Measured scan of single mutants.
Amino acid sequence: MDSLVVLVLCLSCLLLLSLWRQSSGRGKLPPGPTPLPVIGNILQIGIKDISKSLTNLSKVYGPVFTLYFGLKPIVVLHGYEAVKEALIDLGEEFSGRGIFPLAERANRGFGIVFSNGKKWKEIRRFSLMTLRNFGMGKRSIEDRVQEEARCLVEELRKTKASPCDPTFILGCAPCNVICSIIFHKRFDYKDQQFLNLMEKLNENIKILSSPWIQICNNFSPIIDYFPGTHNKLLKNVAFMKSYILEKVKEHQESMDMNNPQDFIDCFLMKMEKEKHNQPSEFTIESLENTAVDLFGAGTETTSTTLRYALLLLLKHPEVTAKVQEEIERVIGRNRSPCMQDRSHMPYTDAVVHEVQRYIDLLPTSLPHAVTCDIKFRNYLIPKGTTILISLTSVLHDNKEFPNPEMFDPHHFLDEGGNFKKSKYFMPFSAGKRICVGEALAGMELFLFLTSILQNFNLKSLVDPKNLDTTPVVNGFASVPPFYQLCFIPV
Rank of each mutant, 00 (worst) to 15 (best):
P464G: 06
H353S: 08
G431K: 05
T364M: 15
H411L: 01
D414S: 10
I331G: 01
G437D: 09
V60S: 12
T299K: 03
K52Y: 08
H230G: 08
F425S: 08
P464Q: 06
F482Y: 07
L294G: 00
N231C: 10
L391V: 06
E199L: 12
A350G: 04
L9P: 05
E122P: 09
C435T: 05
D188V: 05
V472E: 14
Y189K: 02
E274L: 08
D341E: 02
D89N: 14
I359D: 01
E85M: 10
Q192I: 12
A477G: 13
T469L: 11
S254I: 13
C435H: 05
A441T: 09
P166S: 03
R139D: 06
I123R: 06
F187W: 08
I169G: 01
V473R: 15
E85I: 03
F407D: 01
N202V: 08
L17P: 02
S242Y: 09
A106T: 14
S23Y: 15
H251A: 07
L445N: 05
K247M: 09
Y243P: 01
L131I: 14
I207E: 04
A103G: 14
K315S: 04
K459P: 01
L128C: 12
C486V: 07
A161M: 15
K28V: 14
N202A: 12
R335A: 06
Y483F: 11
L15Y: 11
S303T: 08
P73A: 03
G109T: 14
F134P: 09
T450V: 09
N231V: 06
L306T: 02
I213W: 08
P471T: 03
E81G: 13
G384P: 01
E288H: 06
T229K: 14
C172V: 06
T305E: 06
A441P: 02
G27C: 11
P367S: 04
K160Q: 11
K421L: 15
I223P: 11
V323A: 09
F412W: 05
R124S: 06
F183V: 04
T301S: 14
C266K: 12
N455V: 07
P33Y: 00
I112A: 13
D256S: 11
S209K: 13
K423I: 13
T299V: 13
V292P: 00
S95V: 05
E203G: 09
G135R: 09
R329D: 09
E326N: 02
Y243W: 14
L380G: 06
V153H: 00
Q146D: 04
E148W: 00
T371K: 06
K459A: 07
L234V: 14
T55D: 09
H316L: 03
A106F: 13
I213F: 15
C151L: 07
G96W: 14
I182V: 14
P227M: 13
K399L: 15
P30V: 00
L4G: 04
G96H: 13
T348A: 07
W212M: 08
G111M: 05
I488T: 15
S162M: 13
V5C: 14
V355C: 14
F487L: 02
N202C: 07
L87Q: 06
Y68G: 01
Y379M: 06
P481T: 03
P427L: 07
L445M: 12
V330S: 06
W212D: 02
T348R: 00
R132G: 10
R21K: 11
K421R: 10
F376V: 08
I47H: 08
L15R: 02
L458Y: 01
T283A: 05
G442S: 15
F65W: 05
P101V: 06
S209D: 15
L43Y: 06
R150L: 10
N204H: 05
N418S: 13
Y189P: 06
G111C: 04
D188G: 11
K160Y: 09
C338D: 06
N217Q: 12
Y308T: 02
I112Q: 09
F239T: 14
K375Q: 14
L29T: 03
Q356L: 13
F134A: 14
S429A: 10
D265R: 03
P63T: 06
G91C: 11
L391I: 03
Q193C: 10
T66F: 01
G62P: 01
P279N: 10
F134T: 15
M406L: 11
P480R: 03
F226W: 07
W212G: 03
E300Q: 15
D256A: 14
Y308I: 03
D143P: 05
P163A: 15
V113I: 13
L362N: 05
V6K: 02
Q214L: 10
G416E: 15
I50V: 12
L195C: 14
K315F: 00
H230R: 07
F295P: 01
V473D: 09
S162I: 07
S286V: 11
F187A: 03
C172I: 07
E285G: 12
P427G: 05
K235A: 09
K185I: 05
I112D: 11
A173S: 04
C338G: 11
S478W: 05
D188E: 12
L15S: 07
V6M: 09
S51W: 08
V351P: 00
V436T: 06
P489R: 02
K118H: 12
C13E: 01
F126S: 05
D265M: 03
V5L: 14
P166Q: 02
R144V: 13
G117H: 11
L102S: 10
L306Y: 00
M255R: 14
R125A: 11
L87N: 08
Q484W: 04
K315C: 06
E415G: 11
T386V: 11
K420F: 05
I178W: 03
H344Y: 07
N236D: 05
M269E: 13
F401W: 13
R357F: 00
A86L: 05
V177E: 00
S478V: 15
E250S: 11
T385S: 06
S343H: 15
L361V: 11
K28I: 14
T364L: 15
L310T: 04
V248L: 12
I374C: 10
F267P: 02
I39E: 02
I215C: 14
P480G: 03
D397G: 05
S12G: 07
Q484Y: 02
